[in-house]
Computed example of a mutant assay.
Amino acid sequence: MSWDEQQLQQRLDTMAEQIGQWMTGREPLLVGIESGGAWVAEALNQRLPSALPMGTLNPSFYRDDFDTRGLKPATRPSKLPFDVDGRHILLVDDVLMTGRTIRASMNELFDFGRPASITLAILFDIGHRQLPIRADICGETLALPPHQRVELRGPAPLVAEIREIRPEE
């Protein structure tokens, strides 16, 4: 199964509507998790009535499997060009699976300050939770078997497909 640019645009439009409602009375900051979450955050930001201040997080150093997984060759540093203390954060990622990337991202975010709140927006929620983390705003929920995952490619155009996980991954 795959999603073309138009299908993803429809999901992003729906998510942007939900974010617009959530934003009422708040002045949030938008934070995308590298790299797919940053692409989704940018696409969402373009759909909002007024663009939000945006930053990116790369939680690679905060992962609990860092010692066995290591770093990807193209690891980029986090960029939060604003103060997060007391602010409402809209944290965005492309796929929510185990919850470990979100946990690592929140750990890193708290190194930058103490937000008033963190709201999680996810393009695809595929389950397989290992931690009690859930999306507040979700583009699509899928029930995939453990040997499959959703892979997002971008940044433009955004396309997604389900792929098989090889045992060594």
Rank of each mutant, 00 (worst) to 15 (best):
Q148I: 04
F112N: 04
G70D: 09
N107M: 04
S78T: 02
S50C: 14
E140P: 03
T14Y: 10
H128W: 01
G154M: 02
L48K: 11
S60N: 06
E34G: 00
S35Q: 14
D83R: 06
L120K: 03
P146A: 15
G99D: 12
D13F: 02
G70V: 07
L152A: 09
D64H: 14
R166D: 10
V92L: 07
P145H: 08
T98Y: 06
E108S: 03
I19N: 05
A116Q: 14
S60C: 13
E27M: 03
L44W: 12
T101E: 07
L29M: 13
R134G: 11
D13W: 06
V150C: 10
G70N: 09
E161H: 10
T101V: 04
S60R: 15
P28A: 09
A43Q: 12
E164F: 09
E42L: 14
K72D: 14
L44G: 12
P157Y: 06
A143S: 15
V92W: 08
S2Y: 13
W3E: 03
T56D: 14
E161Y: 02
L48F: 13
D125F: 01
G99R: 05
S50D: 14
T24R: 14
D65T: 10
H128M: 09
P73Y: 05
Y62D: 08
L120I: 08
L144Q: 11
G25Q: 03
T101C: 04
L52R: 14
F112C: 01
M106T: 07
R26Q: 15
S50W: 13
Q148L: 12
W39R: 03
F61K: 08
V40P: 09
P157A: 06
M23P: 00
Y62Q: 08
G25P: 03
L109A: 03
G20M: 03
D125Q: 03
R166E: 13
Q130S: 11
I118V: 15
R103G: 11
K72C: 08
Q130N: 13
P145M: 12
H147W: 09
P59N: 10
L131T: 08
P157W: 05
L96N: 12
P115A: 00
L71N: 00
D13L: 12
A121Y: 04
L96W: 07
G154S: 01
L57R: 07
I33S: 05
